[in-house]
């Protein structure tokens, strides 16, 4: 079909439309591509996942309807509850720690003039690194002697070795540390932008009035940073709830181990779907993850909305 043909055919109709109608039509014509893309690539599979979660599809055989069986199994699966706790441990440790660290860094970096861009670039660098590569480097840091850097240092000073990834209590923080470190650069940049957006006249006025630095921070900086904070809390919460690459790569022989102590929900979904091929059960887990993400995002947006 050629373009001239279309115009000629539609010419009569087209000329009868008003300018605003034409604008709307054009807008929809351009929007059609992303709308179609989102419908086919995003929304349709999402709907499919809901359907699959009520079936016993295992790739090999056609799916048959099992109702809420997958959800019942999930409810009584102790692994699910362990994974559930882990996922929230990532969220409840990761988000506050990373936001606090990045705010402190951004707050002081904002005042540094000497090599400001260079230092900022240094903080941003880990964010550009592939999570998988980073996880592997940290994996080696955590090894026991003779190859683990941290344990080598401990052993040199005669201190006892730490098991790190080989411990059910230390493994999760050990996996979380590189994840926080990697996300720091991004959060610092956003905080810096937020800090720069606060008019300097407010600070000048406060200083003339004799407010202490602490009071300025509490009364001016933090309240005015709220939109930035909301964005970062939601963004990093979703990030920690979906944590996967770091966990998988830092212990790829026993992903989520030892004894499932670092396994997040996304990894459980992956294993159920692509190593056990229980697609229906995996879809049910996906639906649960979706609901968790939805509820948390809504709650956060509500709590942090301007009063």
């Amino acid at each position: 079909m050629s373009a001239t043909g279309t115009e000629a055919a539609a010419g009569g109709l087209w000329s009868r439309l008003s300018l605003s109608q034409k604008q709307v039509l054009w807008a929809w014509a351009f929007l059609a591509v992303p709308v179609l893309f989102y419908t086919v690539i995003r929304f349709w599979p999402t709907v499919q996942a809901f359907y699959l979660s009520a079936t016993d599809w295992n790739v090999m055989r056609p799916a048959s309807y099992v109702g809420f069986e997958n959800y019942r199994r999930l409810w009584s699966d102790p692994l699910f509850w362990q994974v559930f706790r882990n996922t929230f441990a990532y969220l409840l440790l990761g988000t506050p720690i990373s936001l606090l660290l990045s705010f402190v860094v951004a707050y002081y970096l904002d005042r540094v003039r000497f090599m400001h861009s260079f230092i900022r670039a240094l903080y941003f660098l880990p964010f550009l690194t592939t999570a998988a590569a980073m996880a592997w480097v940290w994996r080696w840091f955590y090894q026991p002697v003779p190859i683990g850097v941290i344990n080598d240092i401990l052993a040199t000073f005669g201190l006892p070795q730490q098991p790190f990834l080989r411990s059910t209590t230390q493994a999760l923080p050990a996996v979380l540390a590189p994840a926080i470190w990697a996300g720091l650069g991004f959060q610092i940049i956003i905080f810096l932008a937020g800090l720069r957006a606060i008019p300097s006249t407010y600070y000048e006025a406060a200083r003339i009035d004799g407010l202490s630095e602490g009071a300025i921070l509490r009364k001016i900086t933090i309240p005015l940073l709220k939109p930035t904070l909301v964005f970062l809390v939601v963004f990093s919460s979703i990030g920690f709830l979906r944590i996967f690459d770091q966990v998988y790569n830092i212990n790829s022989n026993d992903p989520g181990g030892p004894l499932n102590s670092t396994k997040p929900l996304v990894l459980m979904i992956y294993q159920t779907a692509f190593s056990s091929y229980e697609m229906g059960y995996a879809a049910a887990q996906t639906v649960v993850l979706f609901l968790i993400l939805l509820v948390i995002s809504l709650v956060q947006l509500r709590i942090m909305r301007d009063r």
């Binding site: 098991p163 080989r166 411990s167 059910t168 026993d254 181990g257 030892p258 004894l259 499932n260 294993q271 190593s275 056990s276």
Partner: peptide
């Protein structure tokens, strides 16, 4: 029947003793 899952059982069995 599910090699990865059955291997995991053995991994966890040893970890429960050595770590747990």
């Amino acid at each position: 029947k599910d090699e990865m899952a059955q291997r995991q059982v053995a991994i966890d069995m040893v970890n429960r003793v050595l770590i747990g």
